[in-house]
């Protein structure tokens, strides 16, 4: 995928984010949470990290595995970048950030290889590719490089959760439409506890290959984005309506004695 391309975009985007981030330097934690999960969701709004998002979300377990890995890398990288932010010059900041992210990804890869070997094999190339996930470098440059460690960690957590939530919804959608099941093979990630978690929603379901193959991911993500936009518009309309009402009430002037 055109990761380099998008990274350049994130540079431009980071400028736009700058104003937002600096306003958050007053550590407005609720703002950070709202941004990460909803308003500035990395998958639905920033459209970052689409390559793994589209490629591995064919089942819930794949989505959860990659979501968790990304989450851990995002938090770790954000904290590390935030700690060194005053010691690296601007010219070498991006290579430094990439080195930090790469070392985190390598650790995660080794951990997954050790504890969830089958899932590691299913996810394959997409675990090392977390390095190139633009959401991580984007957050490191746009937020962690300008903020103290604690807000950066929270930002990493929330962005990671927002990303993972979209991965999970998309994974569930595609698994349900593609295979007619939910939570199959969860034992690959969670151990023997989850061996009976598989729900067969439809009996005798013919596999809809389209949903499992990448085109299904594109259409699924498109529908999710459309859904979010329509919700936001509705919320906006309601908010405006309420504002109008309150304004009208304010304008009322007592004319009677």
């Amino acid at each position: 995928m055109s990761t380099i391309d998008t990274e350049l975009n994130t540079d431009a985007e980071s400028e736009a984010d700058l104003a937002e981030s600096t306003s958050a330097t007053a550590t407005n934690y609720s703002e950070i949470i709202y941004n990460g999960i909803w308003k500035n969701n990395p998958a639905l709004v920033q459209l970052l990290g689409l390559c793994p998002l589209l490629a591995v979300t064919s089942t819930v377990v794949n989505a959860l595995g990659l979501g968790l890995a990304t989450l851990v890398v995002l938090i770790g990288a954000n904290i590390a970048v935030s700690l060194i932010r005053n010691y690296v010059s601007d010219a070498v900041r991006l290579p430094a950030f990439v080195m930090i992210i790469a070392s985190f990804v390598t650790s995660i890869e080794l951990i997954m290889q050790a504890y969830t070997y089958e899932l590691y094999q299913i996810l394959g190339i997409f675990i090392p590719l977390i390095v190139t996930n633009c959401a991580i470098l984007g957050r490191a440059d746009a937020f962690a490089a300008r903020n103290p460690a604690l807000p950066s960690a929270l930002d990493g957590l929330m962005m990671g959760l927002g990303f993972m939530a979209v991965l999970l919804v998309l994974g569930a959608m595609r698994e349900l439409i593609g295979q007619g099941t939910l939570f199959s093979d969860m034992q690959l990630l969670l151990g023997d506890v989850a061996i009976n978690w598989k729900i067969e929603v439809f009996k005798d379901y013919p596999d809809v290959l389209f949903a499992i193959l990448p085109p299904g991911a594109f259409i699924g993500l498109g529908l999710l984005i459309a859904l979010k936009n329509s919700w936001d518009e509705k919320a906006k309309a309601i908010a405006e309506k309420n504002q109008d009402k309150s304004e009208k009430q304010d304008r009322r002037v007592r004319v009677t004695g």
């Binding site: 013919p206 596999d207 809809v208 290959l209 389209f210 949903a211 193959l213 085109p215």
Partner: peptide, 8 residues
């Protein structure tokens, strides 16, 4: 195309 890809 959807049908052919999904249910060959």
């Amino acid at each position: 195309a959807l049908l052919l890809v999904s249910f060959p």
